[in-house]
């Protein structure tokens, strides 16, 4: 999607507005520490493997980079950091891919879209992920660092099977205000 998934106003207009993208598709996301763990939870080996490979491909772009091992360890923990030699001969430090997030767009039972994003350990042993694409809105190295956000979901869980079991009355009112 090239379009915001939702839009909202809190100050403008007559009342607070929250609009969610109009879509009959549903999305689920899961955090897995390996493709095997993903398959065990979802029974979807094709998606698990594809998403894992995509996450691996994105790793070099998406992983935070540090000038020193100390900085990397401070952000991700001692056993997470590896040295990467640059073409110019210098070295940088990057956390290893500690897991990946598989996002599936589901139209009914059919998978209509698939995404794999690498996840990294944070200092406290939780997981974090790059925000909005590889580098957030600010490009690394020029004017900022890649933005990372904590991953709230637990690793290797069964995905949500359905939504919407509550709140059916509320959805008949306009959320547009």
């Amino acid at each position: 999607m090239k379009r915001s998934s939702h839009i909202a106003l809190v100050l403008m207009g007559t009342s607070p507005l929250l609009l969610t993208a109009c879509s009959r598709e549903s999305a689920d996301e899961g955090l897995y520490t390996s493709a095997q763990a993903c398959i065990e939870q979802t029974n979807d080996s094709y998606s698990c493997n594809q998403a894992f490979e995509q996450a691996q491909r994105e790793y070099a772009q998406a992983a935070p980079q540090y000038a020193t091992r100390e900085e990397c360890v401070a952000a991700h923990g001692a056993d997470q950091c590896q040295v990467v030699r640059q073409q110019q001969g210098s070295s940088i430090f990057m956390p290893m891919m500690a897991g990946y997030i598989m996002g599936r767009m589901l139209s009914g039972n059919r998978v209509s879209g698939l995404a794999g994003t690498p996840a990294f350990r944070d200092r406290a042993g939780g997981f974090q992920r790059p925000v909005a694409g590889a580098n957030g809105v600010y490009r690394a190295g020029s004017l900022g660092r890649p933005a990372m956000a904590p991953v709230q979901m637990a690793a290797n869980q069964k995905p949500t099977a359905s939504r919407g079991g509550f709140g059916g009355q509320g959805s008949q009112r306009s959320s547009g205000g």
Partner: peptide, 27 residues
């Protein structure tokens, strides 16, 4: 227009300006 059926529900638009603004302010 998607809700009214003029366009299919999967129609897209090059417009993540809102999400980008909120993210940029946060950064």
């Amino acid at each position: 227009h998607m809700a009214a059926g003029t366009f299919p529900l999967a129609t897209d638009q090059f417009n993540s300006i809102y999400e980008s603004l909120v993210e940029a302010f946060g950064t």
